[in-house]
């Protein structure tokens, strides 16, 4: 996995709670057997006026100019500011793949759905949880200032605002280290191979029926 390095970028606001994974990447794009190329279809139903199809270029599709990501002031944004329960719904990792592929590296919200939150870390995306009042303030600043930027310092767990103000955030130590070092989680777990095997032997003694092979 790519390492997460400190970034500075434009903030795009999606002022809506419960943004679900069907909205983030509609189902027709889930037919892909690849991990890449989902960016042009991120928020497809909100972003375009026609119906998107997999494998069809988005270059000449009619844009919904009211949608935030289509507005000039948010072009090139790499930080997404949003509301409660972002990423609810399905477990599709296509959602963080699309967000990353579009160019976002950081998501900030009062809360995220559990599965989506975990999926972000596997893909070098940093989801930051802040209390609701701070989120309200940030929305105000973003709306008030075209080109509003932030700098994210993961190591020090700080968001630096242009005005010089800092906001601290919390993150689980293991997840932080995986992001900062671009660690391969499977490789990490494989280092515990022996304790897994030893657990498995014990587990098999206690619950042998679980280890019956499924013969279809």
């Amino acid at each position: 996995m790519e390492k997460f390095s400190n970034i500075r970028g434009i903030v795009a606001p999606i002022d809506r709670a419960n943004v679900d994974t069907d909205a983030i990447i509609p189902k027709q794009f889930l037919k892909s057997i690849k991990r890449t190329g989902f960016g042009p279809n991120l928020f497809d139903e909100w972003r375009y006026l026609d119906i998107g199809e997999p494998g069809v270029s988005c270059d000449n599709r009619p844009l919904n100019n009211d949608f935030v990501l289509n507005q000039d002031r948010y072009q090139g944004s790499s930080i997404l500011l949003t509301r409660n329960n972002f990423g609810c719904g399905s477990s599709r990792e296509h959602a963080p793949w699309a967000i990353k592929d579009y160019g976002f590296r950081v998501l900030i919200a009062p809360s995220f759905a559990d599965i989506f939150y975990n999926n972000c870390f596997k893909n070098g995306l940093l989801p930051i949880v802040l209390e609701e009042s701070k989120i309200d303030d940030l929305f105000q600043s973003v709306h008030a200032t075209p080109g509003f930027e932030m700098a994210i310092d993961l190591n020090n767990q700080k968001i630096q605002l242009s005005a010089g103000e800092n906001i601290s955030f919390n993150i689980d130590g293991y997840k932080k280290s995986c992001l900062m070092n671009g660690l391969d989680e499977i490789g990490q777990t494989m280092e515990k191979k022996e304790i897994i095997q030893s657990f498995e032997r014990q587990h098999k003694k206690l619950s042998p029926w679980i280890f019956e092979d499924l013969v279809v």
């Binding site: 477990s91 975990n118 596997k122 893909n123």
Partner: peptide, 8 residues
Amino acid sequence: AFGIGTSE
């Protein structure tokens, strides 16, 4: 029983 992403 719970849902997981593709990396998982």
